[in-house]
C-alpha cells in the first residue's frame, strides 16, 4: 500500500528563514506553503461535496419509498445504521481490496455515512406533515403527485435541511481521514506533519479543516433560511 505516513523528521522550512523550530505557528512558513494547503482544501471540498450529493440522490428517494411502503423502513434503517457504525478508517481500508486505492473507495465510504441521517431525517420530516394538511390539499383537487411536490416535501424540508447540516460537517470531518488511503484532502498534511517537531504544518491543516467545516455549516444554515422562509416567520412570530 502506498501510504504517506512517513513525513520527514527534519522540518520542511522551504525558503523561509524567520521560523524557529519550537514555534507554535509561523506565518511566514504558512504563506510559503499556501499553495499546498490551497490544493488540499479544494480537494477536500469536492471530495466532501461529491459524497453529500450522492448521499442525497440515494437517501431522498429511499425515504420517499419508505414513506409510501413502511415495510421498507426497517431494512433501510438497519443497513444504514451498520454502515454508520463501522469505523470510517476500517471501512476505507477494507474497501481497498475491492475497489482499489483512489477516490472511488473514499466516496463509497463517505456516502455510506451520509445515508442514515439523511434517510431518517427525511422520513421524519415527511411523516410530520399533519394529515389534515394533506386532506385539505386533496379536497382542493391537488393530485397525489402535486401534493407530494407542493405540500409534503416543502413541509418536510426543515427536517431534511437539519439532517443535511449534520451530514455536511460530519462528511468534512471524515474526509480528513481519506488521506490514510489516497492523497486527497487536508488529511494529507495532517498525516504528513504528524511526526514533526515543527508543528506549524499540523496547526495549519487542522485549523483549515475546522474553518472549512464552520464555513460549510454557516452556508447550510443560510441555505436553510432561504428555502424555508415560513419556518423563520413562525419562530419570529411566537
Amino acid at each position: 500500500m502506498s501510504l504517506r505516513l512517513q513525513g520527514p523528521v527534519i522540518p520542511d522550512f522551504g525558503n523561509t528563514s524567520g521560523c524557529k523550530a519550537n514555534e507554535t505557528f509561523c506565518w511566514d512558513w504558512f504563506a510559503d506553503h499556501w499553495d499546498r494547503f490551497a490544493a488540499e482544501l479544494v480537494q477536500h471540498v469536492y471530495v466532501s461535496a461529491i459524497a453529500i450529493v450522492i448521499g442525497l440522490v440515494i437517501a431522498l428517494p429511499a425515504a420517499l419509498v419508505a414513506y409510501r411502503l413502511p415495510r421498507f423502513e426497517t431494512p433501510a434503517v438497519v443497513f444504514s445504521t451498520i454502515l454508520y457504525t463501522i469505523p470510517v478508517l476500517g471501512f476505507f481500508l477494507l474497501m481497498i481490496p475491492v475497489t482499489g486505492i483512489g477516490l472511488f473507495t473514499i466516496e463509497i465510504a463517505l456516502v455510506g455515512y451520509t445515508l442514515l441521517l439523511l434517510f431518517r431525517n427525511t422520513l421524519t420530516g415527511l411523516r410530520s406533515v399533519p394529515p389534515e394538511v394533506r386532506a385539505a390539499a386533496l379536497g382542493m383537487g391537488l393530485t397525489p403527485g402535486q401534493i407530494l411536490v407542493r405540500i409534503t416535501f416543502p413541509l418536510a424540508l426543515p427536517a431534511v435541511m437539519a439532517g443535511l447540516r449534520v451530514v455536511t460537517v460530519t462528511t468534512i470531518s471524515l474526509a480528513t481521514l481519506a488521506a490514510y488511503i489516497a492523497p486527497y484532502g487536508l488529511g494529507q498534511s495532517i498525516l504528513f506533519y504528524i511526526g514533526n517537531t515543527f508543528i506549524s504544518g499540523l496547526i495549519s491543516a487542522g485549523v483549515l479543516a475546522i474553518l472549512l467545516a464552520l464555513v460549510a455549516d454557516a452556508l447550510i444554515v443560510g441555505l436553510t433560511r432561504l428555502v424555508t422562509p415560513w419556518a423563520r416567520a413562525r419562530r419570529g412570530g411566537a
Binding site: 507554535t24 505557528f25 449534520v166 460537517v169 468534512i172 470531518s173 471524515l174 480528513t176 481521514l177 487536508l186 488529511g187 495532517i190 506533519y193 504528524i194 508543528i199 499540523l202 496547526i203 491543516a205 487542522g206 485549523v207 479543516a209 475546522i210 467545516a213 464552520l214 460549510a216 455549516d217
Partner: peptide
C-alpha cells in the same frame, strides 16, 4: 453546533501541537 463541526482528526492535530 460549532463543536459538532470540528473534525476529530483536526482536533487531534492541533492538540499535538498544543
Amino acid at each position: 453546533n460549532v463543536l459538532r463541526a470540528l473534525p476529530t482528526l483536526a482536533i487531534i492535530a492541533i492538540g499535538i501541537g498544543l
